[in-house]
């Protein structure tokens, strides 16, 4: 942590993200499948927003649009007023699978972004600092196949953080981890976010995860996704899973998702 503060002289500050009347669709076998319908969302700099919705509702598509990996059929996305037209290292995605490059060591995987931008030579210390931050310094020379699932996801997180992102986009990054690793990583994620100040957009289908992490939870409808509810979670961190306030919200959200009977 101290090392990172030394390496990064200007701490990252989150960017504002505006999603304006965005609609999107896929062409599958000649038919048009609408995925997003008129989604509008204004996210303040430094907010931690969780997108909750039923499986296959188009959450991940929205993330791909934010990342600039795809262009929306209608509407616009803006980062700090600037229209998003393609991927940019200021908006980094951590995917559900770590997707580490198996032919690169842990260190080289983390260095990927800096290398791609051609600034690795002057920024090598940042790679070391970020590896330190996620606690994997001793694994710098290991190859991905030697890592456990939680370690691999930590490397993926480090690979994102080293770029000093203004918006961190998380696509169910903890979805495939065992429940204990998951709880530990949730806490890490919150402290990273508090420390670095980036805007965070998290896609999850775990209501509890959304409530423990985010200060705003957006509930999406079935495909094509529309915003069903925009819920502020006004609770200080670290949050406790047994908090009755969170339990109430959880009940509400499950009801919105049509799952009240399971509570």
């Amino acid at each position: 942590m101290v090392a990172l503060a030394e390496a990064i002289t200007t701490p990252a500050v989150g960017a504002a993200l505006d999603i304006e009347h965005v609609s999107h669709a896929f062409d599958i076998d000649g038919a048009t499948l609408p995925v997003l319908h008129d989604v509008s969302l204004a996210i303040q700099p430094g907010e931690f927003v969780a997108l909750l919705g039923p499986s296959g509702c188009g959450k991940s598509t929205l993330l791909r649009l934010v990342a600039g990996l795809e262009k929306p059929r209608a509407g616009a996305l803006r980062e700090d007023e600037v229209r998003i037209t393609g991927p940019h290292p200021s908006r980094v995605v951590v995917f559900q699978d770590p997707t580490l490059f198996p032919w690169r060591s842990v260190w080289d995987n983390v260095a990927l972004g800096l290398e791609a931008q051609g600034i690795l030579k002057s920024q090598r210390a940042r790679v070391d600092a970020v590896l330190d931050l996620v606690g994997l310094s001793s694994f710098r020379n290991a190859y991905p196949h030697q890592l456990s699932g939680g370690m691999a996801q930590r490397v993926a997180l480090a690979r994102a953080l080293v770029n000093d992102p203004k918006i961190l986009v998380l696509d169910e990054p903890l979805g495939k981890l065992d429940s204990l690793t998951r709880i530990a990583m949730q806490a890490e994620l919150v402290s990273l976010w508090q420390r670095e100040g980036f805007t965070t957009l998290l896609v999850t289908h775990d209501v509890e995860e959304a409530l423990v992490l985010a200060n705003r939870v957006i509930v999406l409808s079935d495909r094509p996704a529309r915003i069903k509810a925009d819920i502020a979670v006004q609770r200080p961190y670290p949050r406790h899973r047994g908090d009755p306030y969170l339990s109430d919200l959880r009940k509400q959200i499950l009801a919105l998702l049509g799952l009240e009977a399971t509570w």
Partner: peptide, 18 residues
């Protein structure tokens, strides 16, 4: 080659040559 690798590299600022 999995598209996921290209997605990762592109979001990290990779150009086509990379």
């Amino acid at each position: 080659v999995s598209n996921a690798y290209y997605d990762v590299a592109r979001t990290l600022g990779a150009k086509p040559s990379f």
